[in-house]
């Protein structure tokens, strides 16, 4: 999967789990994840969805350093075998 494809999938997953009203079409690589309406509970939902829908294995705490959608997509792209 390319990084762009991952971002598209992330947009869909985030739209499902976010607690806030966000203009998802405007979300891009620089969008801070913290601004997208995730609290500690919905972040756990999102990590589950990412692990299962993308079929990637990673340690959840590796995501702590990830701040933007672009960084998340790059991180996930790097986890592809």
């Amino acid at each position: 999967m390319t990084q762009e494809q991952i971002i598209e999938k992330l947009r869909t997953m985030m739209r499902k789990t976010s607690q806030a009203k966000v203009d998802w079409d405007a979300v891009n690589t620089d969008s801070p994840i913290a601004s997208l309406g995730f609290d500690s509970l919905s972040i756990l939902d999102l990590v589950y969805d990412i692990q299962q829908e993308l079929g990637l294995e990673f340690e959840a705490e590796e995501l702590v350093k990830v701040k933007t959608v672009g960084q998340l997509a790059a991180f996930l792209a790097g986890k592809q075998k």
């Binding site: 509970l41 756990l44 939902d45 589950y48 959840a60």
Partner: peptide
């Protein structure tokens, strides 16, 4: 609360 179960599933 769902967090205990989610923590198990993701970690």
């Amino acid at each position: 609360h769902t967090s205990p179960a989610l923590l198990h599933l993701i970690t």
